[in-house]
Write a protein that binds this DNA or RNA. Sequence first.
DNA 1: TCTTTGTCAACTGTCAACAGTTGGACGGAG
DNA 2: CTCCGTCCAACTGTTGACAGTTGACAAAGA
Lengths: 231, 231
Amino acid sequence: MSDEAGAALTRDGTFSRRTEIVIRDMILDGTIPPGERLNEVALASALGISRGPLREAIQRLAGEGLLTVISHRGAFVRTFEARELDELYDMRCAFEMYAVRLICRRADDEQLGDLAAFVADTGLAMDDSNGRYPADRDFHRRLLALAGNTTLERAALDTQAQISLARSMSAQAPSRAKAALDEHQAIVDALRSREPDVAVRLVQQHLEHARSGALAALGFTDDPRKGNETP
Amino acid sequence: MSDEAGAALTRDGTFSRRTEIVIRDMILDGTIPPGERLNEVALASALGISRGPLREAIQRLAGEGLLTVISHRGAFVRTFEARELDELYDMRCAFEMYAVRLICRRADDEQLGDLAAFVADTGLAMDDSNGRYPADRDFHRRLLALAGNTTLERAALDTQAQISLARSMSAQAPSRAKAALDEHQAIVDALRSREPDVAVRLVQQHLEHARSGALAALGFTDDPRKGNETP
DNA sequence: TCTTTGTCAACTGTCAACAGTTGGACGGAG
DNA sequence: CTCCGTCCAACTGTTGACAGTTGACAAAGA
């Protein structure tokens, strides 16, 4: 039984790093839902390791904003108040608005062509399905990659992960798939025309829509300048 | 001897958290210079604790970008290549450009008046001294605080700390104090006139100047799109 | 002299046990 | 029935010891 869940971390590297990856996946998969505590002894024995490396992994994940650690009480999968989700969308906005500026300056036409092709392809895939748009995340990932700034890309992806976790706290939002796809297309068009100011404005609007949708899906009012409950 | 350097962490909280604070200060103070390894057994005994909590603190500081951890080799105070410093300035730009947008929307006249007063006061303080402008960091801190987004503020301060660490790798840059002060003043003026687009542009220019100065001070060429050496 | 290989000390990764704290269950008083 | 104080089990914080890896030094060979 000691190598049951532990089978997942039978690659190389230190226990600590492998454990970090396993737990991150469990959090983002929803295997461990927001608000749930990570019992160190139970989790460590389930992974077939001791508490030392597990605790180190927990510290790193807390630094990424996926766990909340409270002294003498334990580590909890992070929950988000309206305000926090709102702030995360600001972060995302800051990152992606600057990213498109960089892209206009640095990306070549071929890279932008690839991005356009991706949007077209995944758009078709969406039409086949029923109104969902699963490639939204990938579009933003590719966008950030094109900016050519690894540091910014990593920070933005962390923010994206936190938003994803926050959104997992609610049922599905009403599908904004078609609108999002159109907005992606418009952003790419602006990039290909090398119009940074237009692209920045479109990104801002796109993320503003996403923000409203996310806040509404979590049952929050549209402009949360005040805190909320913590279960 | 066990509580010699350890006297510094005789406040409350867990050893792990207190240690994190102590080490962060030592890094930013220059007590432990960039590139230096943290010997776990030596440091732990110097702080009067065991290696467990020390290692947890190290993991968190690595997450902040102040330490680089290499498996089986140890934790090193981070060093920065030209490219990395350049990327950090992009991050800072993204944060502060968005921050001033938020400030134009949210900060009231009194807050902006306080900021203006701060710039005026510290400007005089600078003139008394010999060309240095120590309050630059504080100005940016206050700016970020006014944006009213705790998440963004914390991330921006982390970035600021990394930049500060990177700059500590070189001797002093040629003083840009007067120019920086004027630029700060101009930014505040734009904010008080509620002209977000102007403020954003001024922030971008200000940070672009700071970027060039920092890269030059580290002996790097002005546009580092390629990597550098790692000692 | 330069390269290669074997050995070793120092250090990190990991573990199992100990100590202190927390939240809740339990029981009694009002 | 509610409220409050006590006690306890479960869990986290910390420790010291063990195991595996790394880089360097020294000896042997070309």
